[in-house]
């Protein structure tokens, strides 16, 4: 498996960041960065990362389900994550999530049929003072309202 030149360069840098013989340290970030390109942690990716870090595939399997951002099946091009944890709950996060379900026509951890959007109810993402918050892929959107949410989705849909 090969990744984009930028990611390959990042991996090469990363491997130097851990003590000699302890390159396994790069495992979790490597999986997350690779997943950004492959869409999911596929069996092929497990084997690839295991080879690159000289670890057993089972050592890779062990972490996949532990870290909630790593996933075995791809999500949408725009992975919409709505926080409903306490600060967001108090400021309408739950209603926003329900609104998002209706707007996108999908439920939690589902993907729209065209593969453009996926939705996930997530735990606190560190935007409590600017709640309720939504993260699309890695972009934060603060103080969301159903109206702002609709605008966001519509603009993303247009972007394709």
């Amino acid at each position: 498996m090969t990744f984009s030149p930028e990611l390959e360069a990042r991996f090469a840098r990363m491997l130097r960041n851990y003590p000699p013989g302890r390159q396994k340290g790069a495992l979790i970030p490597m999986l997350l960065y690779a997943q950004d390109e492959t869409g999911a942690v596929t069996p092929e990716l497990v084997q690839e990362v295991a080879n690159r870090l000289s670890v057993k595939p089972v050592e890779v399997e062990e972490v996949i389900g532990f870290y909630s951002m790593l996933r075995r099946k791809p999500m949408g091009k725009y992975h919409v994550q709505v926080c409903t944890n306490i600060s967001c709950l108090l400021t309408g996060g739950e209603e926003l999530f329900e609104h998002a379900c209706r707007k996108l026509g999908i439920g939690n951890r589902e993907v729209t049929p065209d593969g453009q959007f996926s939705l996930e109810e997530v735990e606190c993402m560190g935007a409590c003072s600017w709640a309720p918050a939504v993260e699309v892929n890695y972009d934060f959107h603060h103080k969301m309202t159903p109206e702002k949410f609709d605008q966001l989705i519509d603009s993303l849909a247009k972007r394709q």
Binding site: G25, I28, L31
Partner: peptide, 20 residues
């Protein structure tokens, strides 16, 4: 980079995570 685990805020869990 972490990958989504509150428990890794606990210092020793973080160290495990750092070690892959």
């Amino acid at each position: 980079s972490g990958a989504g685990a509150y428990e890794c805020g606990e210092e020793s869990a973080l160290l495990n995570s750092l070690e892959g």
